[in-house]
Amino acid sequence: MTRQAPDAAMIEAMAREALARIPEPFASYLGDVVLIVDEFADDETLDALGIEDPFGLTGLYHGRPVGEKSTFESGALPDRIHLYRQPLLAEWCETGVDLGDLITHVVIHEVGHHFGLSDDDMHALEDAAG
């Protein structure tokens, strides 16, 4: 029996399920966040983060944390969560962690950046969304 790795659409669907499980008060702030699944981060992103191995980045939040936003901003790009399919699949294969759990972990971590949360707060949010 041949198993195929989930495609970008399946990864996105799993990530949307993870977002849907995030509790209030956080959930009400996530309606405008755009979810993007790419195979890898681009070279510019990797260089900016000082990451040499493209498999070293599974997800990234682009935008300003909620507490730093201004009602006077206009024309700004929407906040985005990027998930990188190939690094996610590699980590899934290497660790044996359930892919849904891994995607949930990465999504929660990136949502945590959206809210400016500490690592401890992100773990508590992940527990609540589990």
Rank of each mutant, 00 (worst) to 15 (best):
A9V: 11
E126V: 02
A90L: 12
L19T: 03
L88R: 05
T58A: 13
A18L: 03
S118T: 15
T2M: 13
H113C: 09
K69N: 12
A5K: 10
D119F: 14
L46G: 05
L57I: 04
L57R: 03
I22A: 05
F40D: 05
D127T: 11
V107R: 02
G59S: 06
A13K: 10
H114F: 11
L19W: 02
G116I: 10
D79Y: 03
A90C: 05
L60S: 02
A90D: 12
E39R: 12
R80G: 02
A129C: 08
T2R: 15
L57G: 05
G31M: 05
V66H: 09
A20S: 14
L49H: 04
Y61E: 03
D32L: 13
V111D: 02
L30H: 03
D7L: 06
D32H: 14
R16I: 00
R21L: 06
S28V: 11
C93Q: 14
V111Y: 01
T71H: 11
F40G: 02
G96K: 03
E44W: 04
D121L: 13
H105Y: 04
C93Y: 11
A9G: 04
Q4V: 13
P87K: 04
G59A: 06
G63F: 07
M122F: 01
G31P: 04
P6R: 03
P78E: 09
D119I: 15
D43Y: 01
Q4D: 14
H109G: 13
G130L: 12
V66A: 14
E39L: 05
F72S: 15
H82C: 11
A8M: 05
D42I: 04
F72H: 12
A76N: 12
L83H: 04
H82G: 01
I11H: 00
D43T: 10
D127N: 10
P23K: 06
A128E: 13
A9N: 07
E94Y: 04
M14A: 09
Y29D: 12
H123A: 14
I108H: 02
A13F: 01
D119E: 15
A76R: 14
P87M: 07
E52T: 12
Y84P: 05
A8S: 14
I36A: 08
L49Y: 02
L125M: 14
I103V: 15
D120P: 01
L89E: 06
E17G: 11
E17N: 09
I103G: 06
A18F: 01
A20P: 00
I22L: 09
G56T: 07
V97C: 08
M122S: 12
G130R: 15
Y29M: 12
A13D: 09
E126W: 07
I11L: 07
A5H: 09
L77E: 14
P87V: 03
I81V: 11
Q86C: 07
L60W: 02
G63L: 10
V106N: 09
E68Q: 14
L125N: 07
A15R: 05
